[in-house]
Amino acid sequence: MSHDLTLDRIRQAPKVLLHDHLDGGLRPATVVELADAAGYSQLPTEDPAELGAWFREASHSGALERYLETFRHTVGVMQTRDALVRVAAECAEDLAADGVVYAEVRYAPEQHLEAGLTLDQVIEAVQEGFELGRRRAAEQGRTITVGTLLTAMRHAARSREIAELAVRYRDSGVAGFDIAGAEAGHPPTRHLDAFEYLRRENAHFTIHAGEAFGLPSIWEALQWCGADRLGHGVRIVDDIEQGADGDARLGRLAGYVRDKRVPLEMCPTSNVQTGAAASIADHPIGLLRRLNFRVTVNTDNRLQSGTTLSAEFAELCAAFGYDWDDLQWFTVNAMKSAFLPFDERLALINGRIKPGFAQLKWASR
């Protein structure tokens, strides 16, 4: 790792984030304040510092199911219009402060209806919040573009309805669609109707696959559902055989994923927390980057993981000796894979990302 690749320096790099959950990125103090305003009394503590530590410790269980349990508190305080606007605005501000220039943030509208909001009201509140956060960031001299991904819960039965909302709001800030939740027992093919609808409508979607469940989940997401990207996709390494001499032999599915340049939305810290990887140093991202898969680096849930995109990059630099060229490679991969029109992707790559990294590399000489 280059000595100039400090967290502060990495924070200056123009970064792209594709996999970040709105309900997994709240500020601990915001959770406390929103809970007080809503009369939500189930928090394990009302001290922001202690609450942040609780989220990190509860999430580091090695099991996806336990990790997902922490969201009942964040979702629990995100049930009103004002709460959604605030959370989205702070999300945009926090990402911009970390040097993110483009982000796709996902959330499940169906989880925010307990206080009487409609699905449309949820979406419009979140979009209002992101616009507010974008303006606040601009006032601080930071430019960020945020698109949202509407998520359907794979254990529920509203995926077609959410898919239709993603299409209806795609000219109003919604970039695409996703399904999330526990993989085991809830294959993506249960939501085939939603995916077929999205394809007919020329819409973009990603699918959580290959995190807590293996190759069949990835195969179904790609070959049955037609996913544009894979959320996590860590378990694709199960189809890669490594020889004693360091050579790697790709199975049919792994070869297809690499050949088709299927983007992998990898979230290193989160993957360690849920047991998808033993440690950052053992994370499959090292092998997949070496084999030139279309790997992207993401945060997943900044609150639960106590992380930022800059911190994820710093961890990878320490583990694998990555330099500025590697970080630019990951970032360009992400921008190429974004659910954004081609001209806009190209403009960000050539106008922000490459010049930004070039300046950092030049200053390191």
Rank of each mutant, 00 (worst) to 15 (best):
D259W: 12
A184G: 12
D20N: 14
Y197S: 05
A163I: 05
Q304M: 15
I10K: 09
T307I: 05
H19T: 01
D36V: 15
Y197F: 13
G243Y: 02
G356L: 05
W329H: 11
G181Q: 01
D323I: 02
L250K: 13
F330T: 00
L222G: 01
L316R: 11
A83T: 04
F213H: 14
N202E: 11
L192P: 03
N350T: 09
G24T: 11
K361C: 01
A363P: 00
H186T: 13
T151P: 03
A58W: 12
K15T: 04
L288Y: 04
Y40C: 08
G52L: 09
G214I: 00
M1R: 14
A163N: 10
T30E: 07
V332S: 10
I123R: 01
V32C: 12
A276S: 15
A29I: 14
E201P: 00
E164Q: 15
P44W: 13
R235K: 13
G321Y: 08
F342A: 15
E211A: 12
L340M: 11
T299Q: 06
F205Q: 03
P355H: 11
R290W: 04
T143G: 06
L22E: 14
I285H: 10
S61H: 10
A314N: 00
G233I: 03
T74L: 02
L68S: 07
A138K: 12
A248L: 13
D94T: 09
D228Y: 03
R302F: 00
T274C: 07
Y40T: 12
L230D: 00
A194Y: 04
E211K: 05
G214M: 02
V75E: 12
C267E: 04
L17E: 15
F213T: 14
